[in-house]
Design a protein around this nucleic acid. Sequence first.
DNA 1: TTGAAAGCGCTAACAT
DNA 2: ATGTTAGCGCTTTCAA
Lengths: 378, 378
Amino acid sequence: MAKAVTVYDVAKRAGVSIATVSMTFRRPERVKASTREIVHAAARALRYVPSASARGLADGRTGALGLFSYDYLVRVEAAAPAGGGPGAGVDPAPPSTVAVEREGPDERCREFPLYVDEIQHGMELACLEHGYALMIGGPSHVSPSTTIADIAGRVDGLAVFPQTLPTEALERIAGRIPVVAVSEPPCDDRLSHVTVDNRGGTRAITEHLIHEHGRRNLIFVGGLNPAEQRARFSGFQDALRAARLRVPRKPLVPPTRVTGTGRSAIELPAGFPLPEAIVCATDDVALDVLDILADRGVDVPGRVAVTGFDGIAAGRIVRPALTTVRQPMIEMGQAVVDILRGRIEDPDRPPEVRELPVRVVLRESCGCRPRAGIWRAG
Amino acid sequence: MAKAVTVYDVAKRAGVSIATVSMTFRRPERVKASTREIVHAAARALRYVPSASARGLADGRTGALGLFSYDYLVRVEAAAPAGGGPGAGVDPAPPSTVAVEREGPDERCREFPLYVDEIQHGMELACLEHGYALMIGGPSHVSPSTTIADIAGRVDGLAVFPQTLPTEALERIAGRIPVVAVSEPPCDDRLSHVTVDNRGGTRAITEHLIHEHGRRNLIFVGGLNPAEQRARFSGFQDALRAARLRVPRKPLVPPTRVTGTGRSAIELPAGFPLPEAIVCATDDVALDVLDILADRGVDVPGRVAVTGFDGIAAGRIVRPALTTVRQPMIEMGQAVVDILRGRIEDPDRPPEVRELPVRVVLRESCGCRPRAGIWRAG
DNA sequence: TTGAAAGCGCTAACAT
DNA sequence: ATGTTAGCGCTTTCAA
């Protein structure tokens, strides 16, 4: 990698000042056409690539939005790097040494895409659309302390998922750039928030279980995000109360263990008394529950119905397919960018809170009948 | 947003020089413990967040890797922002206005995650692991010209997908930072490459169709990436040749149209003579083919078998589930980061080419029997 | 229309 | 152990 070409080099070669070079790229119309041409030619010849760092420093904005995400626990081991020659020969058909297998159990879909990934995708779409780059970071093992400010320092606005950063750090960052907390019910911080109707969604799905499937003995199994879980549990209670069923005081918060692939899964005590329905705080938990129940030979949804919350892809792949409450994840990501943009262009704007609607998606695990196919009824 | 706090402010407040402040963050062990404390206290009090731009400028590296991805054609319209009050009240259970629906046809899984998304995810994992941030950009409508160099300028290494940037631009960037072309068979550029065994994979899946399902009249339907498609078509030819079947000279490259959701889908002429098997260049194409065939009431795999290439999630969700060649997408993303890191720390290292193995995944669309469930045989 | 020059905030010699 | 100082590459007045 040759030493970086700078405005100075381009200016010298073009026989103009660095100001002109800069101007040529930033406000072309203010530069004489002929000069512009010369500068461009020089830039091209020199393979000039402007430094975003320098630009960011100079004009105080980076043009990027940040997302501070989870540290996916998953440690997929690197594939044995098949030392590569320059591609397959052209004609002599190389012997086929490709593995062939029927699809077996596969945890891949449990690991990606998770709901954070879909929200991230929404942010990507919105960033592209508005000319921002998206910077993705997360708690790193390498430089645990550095990283926090490290990503905050290179973006004009930041989105964070719950439990990724201490509130102290967040408020510190929020003092410099706009910050929005995603999937964290609004609380008394000075942050913007994007959430969904956790309570209403859980209430609705619980009522479905009660009224459509006649379940009267239901339990709620908790998840990882305390705030959201609380809201969802409230919805669960709402439904039971409205149906005049016994209303539990607390959710069941099962212990977790780490699976072979590094994912953390919940456990249910062996002698666990089966209810008629298990309302789970997240799809992730619900999928674990489905696994456990299958292990124990329990018929789902016959003996016990199971529901989730989120709407991740894996829920459509498993059998029985998971009935759940779907969050509008793409739209959430877009809302995040929306808020960030607004506060970037008007720094005095107060923090904003957006609660998006959810919808209950009926599949098989609640007792509804399966459809012939996903796309076609045929 | 108050004016940014800088090292100068922290230094003044702590009663030390800016060098000490910098040192405190960069090499804490070289600063007396008591001083360190004072500096940290000042930084905290002032809510200091270091500027990555300035840092990047000063030490010539940004600590970020870039990914230049597609401009997803999808234009999901922003959700009607449900004007948000500060969360649901605590006790008076709010009326449930949540929509409930049985899952109908849903194109969502056709749009995300695509195989680019999974490769991206592999990069994310690897970046996290090695303390890099990942910067995601793509062709923007907003600043079409700017954006190219724009992202290149803020990262220490860049990955690009085929057809996203003109070779000219790529080589220009490659002159400054390491660049790896993903899913682009090695060619005569000066870039690093990460690909898979496109030819061998296609040959293997074609041979499965021939030998296990007795198909003798097969066609190959092309995709969008010319280079990969060529390699895959070669594999298709290899298989036919080895089986002494008639070997077509060219793939069928169907016209495309834009669907309601903004996705571009292929079309098949109405009077299209059905073969016994359709080997598609990508899962995306295969899924379109499945759609078209279903529309026309053709039995898959009974009348015609269909296969894909990539291993995207949607292929597991559709019925019949798609038999395909799976690329090790996560590992590809990791390989990309691997190469980039190597060339960043040793800029003189020559471009590197890595070809990863693929595996054929048998599901339903080839004629293999479905399994009872995805995770469990029960 | 173009040039000169003063930063932007931080790092890393080099001094002390 | 800490301070001084010279850049890093670019943008942007202000002059010419």
